[in-house]
Structure formats: C-alpha cells, structure tokens
Design a protein around this nucleic acid. Structure first.
Length: 502
RNA sequence: GUCCCCUUCGUCUAGAGGCCUAGGACACCGGGUUUUCAUCCCGGCAACGGGGGUUCGAAACCCCCAGGGGACGCCA
C-alpha cells in the first residue's frame, strides 16, 4: 500500500484560523500514525486577497502549535513548488488535456451576463448555475474570440443525468445527482486555476492519499471526483470532518467568536492547551483522558472514532484546560520563563516604553498605567461609560463603528488607526477627544491613560476587537435592530470617506 | 428555493443490540480544606429530538417527520 500522505492547504487571505489548525491537527495525526507524511500547501490562487503577510502568519501560527510538516513552501520537498501561484504552468498543461478531450470548454460570458442569469434563476426559484451558453459555440467562434483576446474562463463539462456516488470515510456512501453540479470554472480569466481544479491536480501530483477536510466540501466532492476520472487518476480517500461552531451552532466565524490563532496566543493560552482542546473537538482518547499531548493523541489516534456532530468551540472549557496546563505542566521556573516570554516580547516593549516613560515619576507607576497591555478582557462596567456629553448609545455607536472599520483596515499601522479615528470623529461631528472616550474605557479600562490610538495599534486587531466587543456587551449589547441601523450608519460613513480618498 | 450532512445533559463527549437506573469532563449549585480567594477533595443538578417499525430486548439497526448546520462565486 502506498505511503499515507495528507495535507493542509490554507489560503493566505486573512488571520490564521483555528479551523485551519483543527483540520491540520487531524491530518497530521492521521499521517504520522500511519508513518506517513503531512504536507503544507499554500492555496494562493486568489490574487486579489492573498498576501505574503498572511502566509507568514499562518506558517508561524501552525508552527507555534507544534503542527510541523514534512514538505512545504518554507522547507521544500520533492513535489514542489508548494505555493499554487508558482504552479501556473502545471495547471495550464492539465487544462489543455481537458480542453482537447472536450471535458472542459472555453466560456466567454461576461460577469454581467452571469450575474443577470443568476438573478433570474434565483427569482424563479431555480438552483443558480451556468446555463451552458458557450457550449453552443463553434470551433470557429472560439478561435475568433480567442484571436480577439476576449477574456474567457475554462469550465468543466458535467454529466446531465445520473448521480455521483462516493464513499466518505466517516459518513459512508454519499450520493449527489449530477444535475446538482454546476459547470464549475476551472481556470479563471486571470489564467489562474480555481480551488477545485488546482486542488485536484496538486493532490494527485503531491501523491495525497487521504483528503481530510471540512464538511463544507462535501457538496463539491463530485466535481473533484469527476476531475480525477477525466485524468484517469485514482481519487484519494475522502474524509469530511465536522465544522467547528459558534455557540449559536453556526459555522465558527470571527464575527461571533475569536477565530484567530494569534488571538489565543496574545491572550496567553499555551499552545499545548489549545491543540489539546482542538483535539477533543469531535474526538476522544480511547481511555477517556481529556488532557493529552499532540504526541499522545497521534499515538492513540483513530480517525474512525471522530464524531460528526458539529462541536461548539467553548472558551470556558478551553480556559479550564489552559489553567490545568499552567498548574500541572509548569513548575515555578518554567512558568516564569513562559510568562516573561509572553509578556516581555522585546518588539512590543520597545513600542510601549516611549508611551509611558515620560508619564511616570516612579517605576511603580508603570503597572497601574500600562497594565492593560498585559491583560485580557478588562473589568469594566457601564458606569465607566458615563460622560458629560456622550450618551451610552453614542458610545456604543462609536465602539461598533470603530471595530468594523478596524477590521477593514488594509494596513495595520499607527497612522491608519489614527486616520480612522479622525474620520470617525469628523463623520459623527464629535470632537476627537470625545470620540476617543469610549475607546479609552474599552481598550485601557480608564478614561485617562496613554494614547489609545497607540494602544490599539500595539495590542493588535485581535485583542482590540475582543475588548471593544466586550465593552459593547457591557453597554447592553446590540440587538438585531441596532445592527441594522449601525450597518446603515457604516455605509454612510464609507460614503463619507470616499471623497476624502481622492 | 434546490441538494447534502448532522442530531445523547446548557457545552465537549462515552456508547458498535442486553454491561444503561445512560458514564466522564466543563459550566452551574451545595459541602470540606485554605487567614481570603484560587487550587484541591466530596456531593448534587442535568440528555438519548418526535413518531413508526425490526427484535425476546433498541440510545444503538431501518423508515418517516421535525430541528440544526452546510453548499449552491472567475472565494477558498
């Protein structure tokens, strides 16, 4: 039997997500338990959203959790390159095969036509999907359009009847009718592949034997199987893991829950505890032990014991586990070391020091003044938001708009945070001093402190977002109705911003 | 709307037809230890979504329903 090879294939389009770590953990355990290999591949075919920064952050976060890999963009390997943006030629060659065999076709439809088509279909309560318009094109039509350099995509031909039957390692047989499957775009007009195409080609070339991924992919598996068939390749074994959930059971999302691995790092969770916690999402040790290391998990791992109900990510239980690790795994010396490393990160300290050096008269003033830099959520109450000119509702509006704006910041710099606060102040017609008041409470816990703009910048998006969100809760939270109104205000704010950018 | 997946305490889960009066853990509540608190220890609360089958026997197997979730992009 071929050597087991699994992979994690993150897309570098944002913060390193705990869901990525979760799937990586199970892939890694499975591979290593079978004396196989676990590889990392970067799926950066979305040119508009992928960033090198995000790729670095993801690699760093996975390594922090101890999820190392046998092959990857950073360490190379025999099946590289491991970054899809560097494999364009490979995809082009493979797409040509499908084109020649008539298993794929060029589609010249404009985005406008497709949007209109989708709108009509949705209106008529039909399943949205490509109508096969360009299938009718003659060879001459196609050559002419190609010569005229009309932008095009390559779509996959799909059987019109019958069904795709496949085995899922955890769920057994799954049958999906071909008519449910859209004529998927394989190659985009920028000549880069879509996920579906690149993924199949790479998994084959990288000799992936087991595809362990999130449940969200079940419905597109027929597309992947069809591609394996077209190429005459042996498909891997599929295994769809349950999705991590928010407390309301929806798919884990940063809008409702901190999802960034760096948030948990910044909050002072130990990597061993976080990975242990992820290991008990949908899986248990055969002996029922709840505290286990990644090596112990790997040794006892049995993928067939994964339970399928979507597990809710419960921060309270994570807190308990993390405390247990601190108490049981760290002696005084180790604790001191771990804490110092976490708290006195030199890059962070060098940013904080200038903010407080000139404000203190005694060294003992430092902790009361800057303790919030080393805290998680702050012990604030609605009474802290009482202000001469601002109502609690205004405070809430400022806070909520600020979080949303921070999330959309293209670049995390001190200047961009400041700019954001300035424009918000102008937009609301409130002096900057007042605008910043609720932020001072939320971020520093006090009405008077070091520069809150610098504080947000230094604390980073994860912690700032968590604190602001906590402040909004303290103020009574936002109802669905509030959200609607706030979103409208946000749109106004964005309109307000547009002329300023010229 | 169409399709797919899922369903045991509030949450994470054990459970492979009789070991189930359904076990463990978090949270919560009570009690003990502790100068306080936390830790630690002891105890308590709390679940098989509903309805039909199959079977001597169903949490487990089958069917239907309901509920939840996901997918339906030139995102991944």
């Amino acid at each position: 039997m071929a050597k087991v090879r699994t992979r994690i294939a993150p897309s570098p389009t944002g913060d390193p997500h705990v869901g990525t770590a979760y799937i990586a953990l199970f892939n890694r355990c499975f591979a290593r338990q079978h004396e196989g290999e676990f590889i990392l591949r970067i799926e950066d075919t979305d040119q508009t959203r992928s960033t090198a920064r995000s790729e670095q952050d993801i690699l760093k976060a996975l390594r922090w959790l101890g999820l190392d890999w046998h092959e990857g963009p950073d360490i190379g390997g025999p099946h590289g390159p491991y970054r899809q943006s560097q494999r364009s030629d490979i995809y082009r060659q493979h797409i040509d095969v499908l084109l020649e065999n008539g298993q794929a076709f060029c589609c010249f439809c404009s985005a406008e036509r497709l949007d209109a088509l989708r709108a009509t279909q949705t209106e008529n309560r039909q399943t949205p999907g490509y109508d096969g318009h360009c299938l009718a094109l003659s060879e001459q039509d196609i050559q002419k359009k190609l010569a005229e350099k009309v932008p095009y995509v390559v779509r996959m031909r799909v059987p019109s009847e019958g069904e795709c039957v496949f085995q899922d390692r955890l769920r057994g047989e799954i049958r999906i009718a071909w008519e449910q499957i859209d004529m998927q775009v394989l190659l985009k007009s920028d000549h880069l592949p879509t996920y579906h195409f690149a993924n199949v080609v790479d998994d084959h070339l990288m000799e992936i034997t087991h595809v362990i991924r999130g449940e969200e992919w079940i419905n597109s598996t027929p597309k992947h199987i069809l591609l394996y068939q077209h190429f005459g390749w042996q498909p891997p074994q599929f295994c769809h893991m349950p999705l991590l959930r928010n407390p309301d059971k929806s798919k884990l999302s940063k809008r409702k829950n901190p999802t960034s691995i760096s948030y948990y790092k910044d909050m002072g969770y130990l990597p061993e505890a976080l990975i242990n916690y992820l290991g008990m999402m949908g899986w248990t040790m055969p002996d029922g032990r709840e505290k286990f290391s990644i090596d112990e998990m790997q040794a006892a791992f049995d993928i067939d014991r994964v339970s399928l109900g979507g597990p809710v990510f419960d921060v309270e239980k994570l807190d308990w586990l993390n405390g247990k690790y601190i108490r049981e795994n760290l002696d005084a010396e180790a604790f001191a070391q771990v804490f110092a490393q976490w708290a006195f990160d030199s890059a962070k300290i060098s940013k904080i020091v200038p903010l407080l050096k000139d404000r203190v008269e005694r060294l003992s003033d430092v902790v009361p003044l800057a303790g919030f830099f080393l805290s998680g959520l702050l012990p604030i109450s609605d009474a802290d938001f009482v202000h001469k000119q601002l109502s609690p509702a205004q405070c809430k509006t400022i806070l909520q708009l600020t979080v949303w704006q921070l999330e959309q910041l293209p670049e995390w710099t001190r200047e961009s945070v400041e700019q954001l606060c300035q424009t918000l102040s102008q937009f609301m017609g409130i002096k900057i001093r007042e605008t910043l008041f609720p932020l001072f409470i939320a971020i520093t816990g006090k009405a008077v402190s070091t520069s809150v703009i610098d504080a947000i910048y230094i604390l980073g998006l994860d912690i700032s977002r968590a604190r602001i969100r906590h402040a909004v809760e303290v103020l009574g939270g936002v109802s669905k109705k509030d959200v609607k109104e706030l979103e409208k205000t946000l749109r106004d704010l964005q309109k307000f911003l547009l002329p300023a950018q010229d």
